[in-house]
């Protein structure tokens, strides 16, 4: 006896829920794209949510369904950059076999390349992040998940190097230390006026080479 199947079950495309999620993500990205364009033109502080929604082709009320404030938009931007950074790093290639200072250099440098088109916006975000009440503050509840993902990524990378004997056991403080260094490098990069931001490249390379050598010697620097 042939088994009767309903036409709905034979449908191979995404379900209603999946389609809704896809639409949501498309809208989010359209809003972010419009916002980034406006931030570049007018600056983070001077672009209004009304202008962003108009540019994205959405009603202002719809925009609020996705992002309640501009800070939420900035958080989404940071999250998307982090996801892209991790995916880029984990993509198999010669970088995976490179020494640790080079891999760490590549992570920070790739991140800087990603955010380079939005330099002014990033500068404004960093200024906001200095306010403890801001959602963008590294200590805010809203950034907790973002921080956790970043630290877990770095921790995994350092743990692999520790297992190979490239580094002494650093544990969690190692990941926190690198996170601070990463933040410091972004601040340095934002203030770097040298041609092609070459001073950032030099500082990044030298600091990482020096720190790795120091850690490999477990703090016992051989000055000779």
């Amino acid at each position: 006896m042939p088994i009767k199947t309903s036409p709905r079950k034979r449908n191979v495309g995404p379900g209603k829920a999946g389609k809704r999620a896809q639409n949501k993500e498309t809208n989010r990205q359209a809003i972010l794209k419009a916002a980034l364009e406006l931030f570049r033109q007018k600056g983070f502080d001077h672009a209004s949510t009304r202008e962003i929604s108009r540019r994205a082709g959405l009603a202002e009320g719809t925009l609020f369904n996705y992002f309640r404030t501009k800070e939420d938009l900035a958080l989404y931007f940071l999250e998307r950059e982090l996801v892209e950074l991790i995916a880029w790093y984990e993509h198999p290639g010669p970088l995976q076999r490179a020494p640790l200072p080079e891999r760490l250099f590549a992570i920070v440098h790739h991140h800087l390349e990603q955010i380079a088109p939005y330099e002014d916006f990033i500068g404004a975000v960093y200024l906001r992040a200095l306010q403890p009440s801001s959602k963008l503050s590294p200590l805010s509840a809203e950034r907790r998940e973002l921080n956790r993902r970043y630290l877990s990524f770095i921790r995994g990378l350092l743990a692999a190097s520790e297992a190979k004997g490239e580094l002494p056991p650093l544990g969690e403080p190692g990941a926190y230390g690198f996170a601070l260094f990463h933040l410091a490098m972004i601040t340095y990069w934002l203030n770097d006026t040298s041609a092609g931001k070459e001073n950032t490249l030099a500082a990044l390379d030298r600091c990482l080479q020096f720190a790795t050598r120091l850690l490999q010697r477990q703090g016992q620097w051989d000055w000779q």
Binding site: P101, E102, F105, L201, D205
Partner: peptide, 14 residues
């Protein structure tokens, strides 16, 4: 030497 990633970055910056 500069490692390949730095040399590449330097090349692009210039």
């Amino acid at each position: 030497a500069m490692h390949p990633t730095l040399a590449r970055a330097r090349f692009k910056a210039s």
